[in-house]
């Protein structure tokens, strides 16, 4: 997995609540058997018209946001299905960090498995970042995972929380499965015991 340490980039404002995974990547793009190549279809139905032409008003189509690396959004981002195609599409587009007042649980977890940092901040702070993002390419937002801070170009700094284990894996780019396999003895022991206590499983 790609490491995430620090990021300084353009932030795009998406001030909508309940941005669901069907919006992030509609189902017609779930028919792939690969993880890559979904970036062009990120937010497909908001981004393109029925003929496949870009809708100029959509934020990621605007010239100043085409290189967006950070998304600032409303409450409950990523609600809906468990499709990991959502973080794959976000990452493939080039976005490495999403900041919102809250996230849906499965999406939040899926981000960490794909080198994306989801940051939950209080509404007032997200509002400030949203304003900042509206300035477009003139304002770069800085994210420092080690220090757990988000900074605006005006020098405002917000601290965020992140689970220590998830942080460690993201900073080091660690593969979860490899880490779990190091604990194979515990899993073996659990299975042996469960065969006694719950043999029907």
């Amino acid at each position: 997995m790609e490491k995430f340490e620090k990021l300084s980039g353009i932030a795009a404002p998406m001030p909508m609540i309940n941005i669901d995974t069907d919006m992030i990547i509609p189902k017609q793009f779930l028919k792939t058997i690969k993880r890559s190549g979904l970036g062009v279809n990120l937010f497909d139905e908001m981004r393109y018209d029925d003929d496949g032409n870009e809708i100029p008003d959509f934020v990621l189509n605007k010239p100043q946001y085409r290189e967006t690396q950070i998304l600032i959004a409303g409450d409950n981002f990523g609600c809906g299905s468990s499709r990991e195609h959502a973080p794959w599409a976000i990452k493939d587009f080039g976005i490495r960090c999403v900041i919102a007042p809250s996230f849906a649980d499965i999406f939040y977890n899926n981000c960490f498995k794909n080198g994306i940092l989801p940051i939950a901040l209080p509404q007032e702070q997200v509002d400030i970042l949203m304003k900042e993002a509206e300035k477009g390419a003139n304002a770069r937002v800085e994210v420092d995972l080690e220090a757990q801070t988000v900074s605006t170009s005006d020098g405002e700094v917000f601290a965020f929380e992140v689970d220590a284990f998830k942080k460690h894996c993201l900073l080091e780019g660690l593969d979860d499965i490899g880490l779990t396999m190091e604990k194979a003895a515990s899993i073996d022991a659990f299975e042996t015991k469960a065969e006694q206590t719950r043999p029907w499983v």
Binding site: S81, R83, K113, I177, T180, M181, E191
Partner: peptide
């Protein structure tokens, strides 16, 4: 629980899920 594809791979390989 519903899980994402990376977690599907994790469960296939280890029969466990990393959870809090």
């Amino acid at each position: 629980h519903g899980i994402g594809t990376s977690e599907v791979e994790h469960v296939l390989a280890t029969q466990t899920l990393i959870q809090r």
